[in-house]
Design a protein around this nucleic acid. Sequence first.
DNA 1: TCTTTTATAACGAAAACGGGGGAGATGTAA
DNA 2: TTACATCTCCCCCGTTTTCGTTATAAAAGA
Lengths: 212, 212
Amino acid sequence: MIRVSIFEDNKHLRETFLFLLNTSEGFTCTGAYADCSTMLEDIAANPCDVVLMDIEMPGMNGIEATKLVKEHFPKINILIQTVFFEDEYIFNAICAGASGYILKSTTPEGYLDAIKNVQSGGSPMTPGIARRVLELFKTNLQPAKPARVYDLTAQEKKVLKLLVEGKSYKMIAAALYVSFDTIKSHISNIYSKLHVHSGTEAVSLALRNKLV
Amino acid sequence: MIRVSIFEDNKHLRETFLFLLNTSEGFTCTGAYADCSTMLEDIAANPCDVVLMDIEMPGMNGIEATKLVKEHFPKINILIQTVFFEDEYIFNAICAGASGYILKSTTPEGYLDAIKNVQSGGSPMTPGIARRVLELFKTNLQPAKPARVYDLTAQEKKVLKLLVEGKSYKMIAAALYVSFDTIKSHISNIYSKLHVHSGTEAVSLALRNKLV
DNA sequence: TCTTTTATAACGAAAACGGGGGAGATGTAA
DNA sequence: TTACATCTCCCCCGTTTTCGTTATAAAAGA
């Protein structure tokens, strides 16, 4: 039995979902709300597994609400449903922690499938949405990696990592249980391998090239 | 009629797909190949709408192949199918231009649905894969990341930028046409605003939070 | 108007850093 | 075996950075 909470400002739609869930095998609706003003209390009072979240709502919108729910109830799977097919929304919804994103043009069976899907660890998306997600993924996250290793040894990588964390030579020495001079020696070697001449340069290069 | 090319090294699977496609309404298989050695010529000789691509193949792997196909035939939709449920593969496949990613555990009907889906502009993904994609999306691509501005002034931002580029105080002073002591002063202010106590820490924080 | 912020600049001292050399103890590869 | 690389440590030396404090003029805000 999947417990679902509904946040949807349109009365007709909200009651349609409520009816659909309560008359379908394996689903139960634990709450249907018109806005998110008392959302956290509502969910706390009526626990659920999945939240069906509208984006466009008076007061707090569905994306902000998603973020909040995820902060307080990280285990709840949130299924966004909207009429908006826009990158900005998709992008923000995903980053807010939504696990699925479907359009309101979805059929009732599609809704139930999506809820089942999201609850079993999937991420249902209207086909076109999924394509947009991949496009966003590709364009925003291009090169994957230059993957150059610069031939740093294991110890040197540890030292570089600590350096990137802002540690001083002294602190790095303490952290690795070796002497100050050993760290100096390692760092000197790191600099020559990375072709840099200062800690700031090394950190910059390391972070830009994802060496750490 | 959706024209499909198959790249799959397993003979049994390859022939199964071939049979499935040629006996299903609305599909036709224009070629079934065991490797990608002559892939571009194969596709040029037998045009298709969708490529069903295996990842693990002798010689060129499916991800490299995907990249190549997309370069030469950008309109072809590529559906990756594999036994591997690994972030690294998913990530690279998407970046290579794949439009769908399904596991080989998918049913025959699932395959046909996926092919139809990918051809009509969707991005079919095995439920768990979709979830992984969203996770990767979220972790690799923090939302625009305004986060905190730390109230750095314009001049301080310039100084920080130069610091991140690995410049020394002296070089920064020269670059901004001010005195060495002025830079000392700015950097001191930057550190206190950023709550750091060294250049490496400042650079690290600046890059991580995309302040520059 | 008065106050605050910003950018500029200076001095001094302690701490940290960067570069140079050398050297012994490993373990592995040729 | 002889190399080679790695990790460890030490010394010296000069430079750079960090952290104080102080101060002035300009700009912006109340």
